[in-house]
């Protein structure tokens, strides 16, 4: 607790739209969030709203803590020894770090896609059915329906419908990534976290993934970490810009708000420098 008594470096996030007072109106409501890897304070004083039914992009140079912050949102950092979160992080108005919250249940509600497509060494069908089966769905007809629906929503059904018994590892990288998206959609999450989902795959698949993101955002709020400015500008409704200015010092949220505002008239000089490609 001593950290809080020390005078902090004054830091102000710029918002082109005011933060809300109603946590329940947001997918995520984050206030005064700090994150530690052991003794290292990786993120400090993050205040942000993640909107429902919208796509939010996290941008910033490598090592600026945007992926770390993303993993705070489904408590994936709990799997790394020595990590710690302070502050408020509410999902649909409820504290996800509260007493009695089971991270396993949380991760069903907040799905995640990784940079590296990570299908399991099983068939396409079994990959998609993995989550529903964990939830106890055994009925074959019901599973079939869930699998088909998820694959359709992930823009993959047409390519694999005749081949559901093929190994999930035997398809192309871009198809694998869409398979992973289908796998997550099959458990009906409220929020989908995507950690640079397009950086390791072919352009055709990138297009398909961006299309599907826009198609499903009404049902699933999406947060995407991306290094690609054009992608952020193309698909997202909201953007948050993270930056670690000095090595060893915590990263901060420099600017956040509507994407068109951030890309057309950034309020902070550092945001402007970054999106125009002056650094990072």
């Amino acid at each position: 607790m001593t950290e809080e008594q020390l005078p902090k470096k004054p830091h102000q996030t710029a918002y082109n739209e005011p933060l809300t007072d109603d946590p329940k109106s947001e997918a995520f409501y984050v206030r005064n969030l700090d994150f530690w890897y052991g003794n290292f304070n990786a993120l400090t004083d993050i205040n942000v709203d993640i909107k429902k039914h919208a796509i939010t992009a996290f941008i910033g140079p490598s090592g600026c803590g945007k992926s770390t912050f993303l993993r705070c949102m489904n408590r994936m950092n709990d799997l790394i020894d020595g990590t710690r979160v302070e502050g408020t992080m509410l999902l649909d108005g409820a504290d996800i770090y509260g007493h009695g919250v089971d991270p396993v249940d949380l991760r069903r509600r907040v799905g995640m896609i990784f940079q590296q497509p990570n299908p399991f060494p099983q068939s396409i069908y079994d990959n998609v059915a993995y989550g529903p089966r964990l939830q106890g769905i055994k009925n074959k007809a019901k599973l079939d329906a869930v699998v088909e629906d998820a694959l359709k929503r992930a823009n993959l059904w047409k390519e694999v419908s005749g081949n559901l018994n093929k190994s999930g590892l035997a398809i192309s990288g871009g198809q694998q990534q869409r398979l992973c998206i289908a796998r997550v959609l099959a458990v009906q999450p409220e929020v989908l976290l995507m950690d640079e989902p397009c950086s390791a795959i072919d352009p055709t698949s990138v297009q398909k993934i961006e299309d599907l993101m826009v198609e499903i955002k009404e049902q699933v709020s999406i947060v995407i970490v991306t290094h690609n400015m054009q992608q952020a500008a193309r698909v997202s409704d909201y953007t948050s810009f993270f930056l670690q200015e000095v090595a060893g010092q915590p990263a901060v949220l420099v600017e956040s708000g509507r994407t068109n505002g951030i890309f057309t008239s950034p309020m902070d000089k550092r945001t402007e420098d970054y999106i125009t490609g002056r650094f990072g």
Partner: peptide, 15 residues
């Protein structure tokens, strides 16, 4: 076994 493979499973709410 790569970390991201495990994470894929945890990310689906697996124990």
């Amino acid at each position: 076994v790569p970390r991201y493979i495990r994470w894929g499973s945890y990310g689906l709410g697996a124990t």
